[in-house]
Design a protein around this nucleic acid. Structure first.
Lengths: 210, 210, 210, 210
DNA sequence: TATGAATGAGTATTCATTCAT
DNA sequence: TATGAATGAATACTCATTCAT
């Protein structure tokens, strides 16, 4: 009885171990430059074993994406239950996004650079769409919050969807900037948190009704 | 004398022809997936010839980056000569950046994705630094403009450097968003220009002294 | 006792089940392209189990050959008991060979293509000899029949062994031709049976004493 | 002037050298078991070089087939110019086929076992058809000779096409038999030539009008 | 200077075989 | 006895780089 369960659990664990190794390698090198050899070595399994769990390099890569999406989805949902004022909600969602970026930088970057390299040609359009839709669902929540702010008279009458895209683009731009340039002198004293908060300060000031 | 000159000019032209071919291929396929064979074919030179002008695939790639930096630098300088109000300057620089993105999408993306995966390990730190410094020079100009706005009493007393980074990150985030998601339903009716203008509207509204 | 017997019987049955699966796969794909995975799946046993019954892929393949030889031997023997005229016997044996080809195409082709490429290097010479000897025994029967025809004055004084080899080669040539070319226009209206009968007509006409 | 020519000639020679090495390996091991590594080693070129001349293992294999077809075609044509009696022509063509088998055993076997392995799936149907048609053209010549013999009153009124297929199948069966069994005791004193002549003796005796 | 021919290390993937349970 | 998990050697094919001409 327990034997079957144990096997399944162990199988899941091995699968996860491979994914963990893959995450490191894919993030460090990118999809194309990463090699199954290196992943296998890092996972401490033979290359053949990798193919028992994933049909191809691409499938392995995509499995990480899926995992990232799921994790973000869950975190999001937990936070959304605590509704407050529009401004607080905006800052709250930014905070969730920031935390995800900090806690799961690998996932974030894999998700973010999905487009890069030759994955696109090997990704099934269905899967790609699925990712987009998941993302849009989340963004629509933000749009709703801005609309709420407008309705309540807190915010000026801006286009809530444009504003949503601006917020998202800004957060991504900041994270990207910090990832790339974090070691550079001109970033001194600034990090994702500080810059994101600063951007929100200005944005919210610009949004508020006077 | 004239002979010497002609030779140099021809040499420069051949080098440029190779870079032009490389640009197309690198942009279409990315650094790793692009092959010297394909670049050679497109340039209508033999593969061997490529190595007379560039020591390696990576050097060829980097030469494009350098070129992009130079072009942007020049455009920037031309615009900076026409100084006006702080707000106009901010919008002006955004416009320059936007035009560069539109006119030279290849350069922009090569510059922008420099960090991602492939190249990182092969780039010489010196070269990386050089790029950073060039970028910082430009950003310091923006900082100066914001400072000017504050001094003149147009803008609130924000941290001009943080604001600069925010603006840059936002523009990049928007361009990236539009590149990746341009074909998706939720981007309908929005493009780089519209979103960038919208972001500036809100930012500038938030920046202005009341 | 009964237990022991049942076990042996079951063991034999499992062995046979594996061989049946192997037959399908080997015939469909050939020795090299067939995989133990596929055979295991078709046999509904694990790959490991296959190795309990057969030491290697090649041994499994050869076991089929042996089986084919045995079956042919048995059919042959049954027919040989009904001796009649030399011509009838020749046609009878051709008919047996034809029926074997039709009823057991898998065995036939495995036997027939034993020599080709793949297996040669891995077959033990002893096993190969064993097959040859089995074949020779059968051919000697045919030789005997021709000799009988000569002795009885039915056939001309030909070399009975050469004639035997001719008959065998002709039958094999026809079967091979039909296997390979059966779908081609120029085979229209002809098949193994028709061509074999036609060849026998001419051969027997040429053999008969005038 | 001569430089270009020399290059072409050398290129052809290198191509031929690779084909010669491939012939040996393919014949010894079969399509599937042969490796590009081994062919490269035998040809004394690097594996990469092979791919400069042939796009794939299969293309290399097929190039041999094509070569074989051409050679046989040419030999055939030369012999056909010397028309004589029907019986002589039959024996003449048999002789040509025999000589081809002796002189080009590699080609013969590659052509003959075209069907084997997984080539069929990778061969373009056009190419396959082309081979068939070439073969049919030759066979139609034999058919014509038999018809001629019938018309002249030399041969009995048999189906000339069936007879043609019989002759072809018999020759192939004999060559196959001799290839496989040449080292075996029961083949002693017999070879392709002897058996083919013997088969023709009987066939022609059976064909002749009495 | 320009070329095209050659190279060989590198990559994803497969599969017969082994072995602990 | 039966399994399924793991292995690693093998294989076709690629491509940046070199070099003789």
């Amino acid at each position: 009885m327990g034997i079957e369960e144990r096997r399944k659990r162990e199988k899941r664990q091995r699968r996860q171990a491979i994914m963990d190794a893959a995450k490191e390698v894919f993030f460090a090198k990118g999809l194309l430059a990463a090699t199954m050899d290196e992943i296998a070595e890092k996972a401490e399994y033979s290359k053949g074993t990798l193919y028992l769990y994933f049909q191809s390099k691409e499938e392995l890569y995509l499995s990480l994406l899926e995992e990232g999406n799921k994790i973000f989805d869950q975190i999001m949902r937990e936070q959304l239950s605590q509704l407050r004022s529009a401004e607080e909600l905006i800052r709250g969602i930014a905070s969730v996004y920031y935390n995800f970026f900090i806690d799961y930088p690998d996932y974030f970057k894999i998700m973010f650079f999905l487009h890069h390299g030759d994955l696109q040609s090997k990704i099934s359009p269905e899967f790609f769409d699925q990712c987009m839709c998941q993302a849009e669902d989340t963004l629509r929540v933000i749009e709703g919050i801005i609309q709420k702010g407008i309705n309540e008279g807190t915010f000026r009458e801006v286009d809530p969807w444009k504003m949503t895209l601006n917020l998202w683009a800004t957060a991504n731009g900041i994270f990207l900037l910090c990832s790339e340039k974090e070691h550079h002198a001109f970033m001194k004293g600034n990090n994702e948190k500080i810059l994101l908060d600063h951007a929100l300060d200005i944005y919210l000031e610009g949004l508020k009704k006077k």
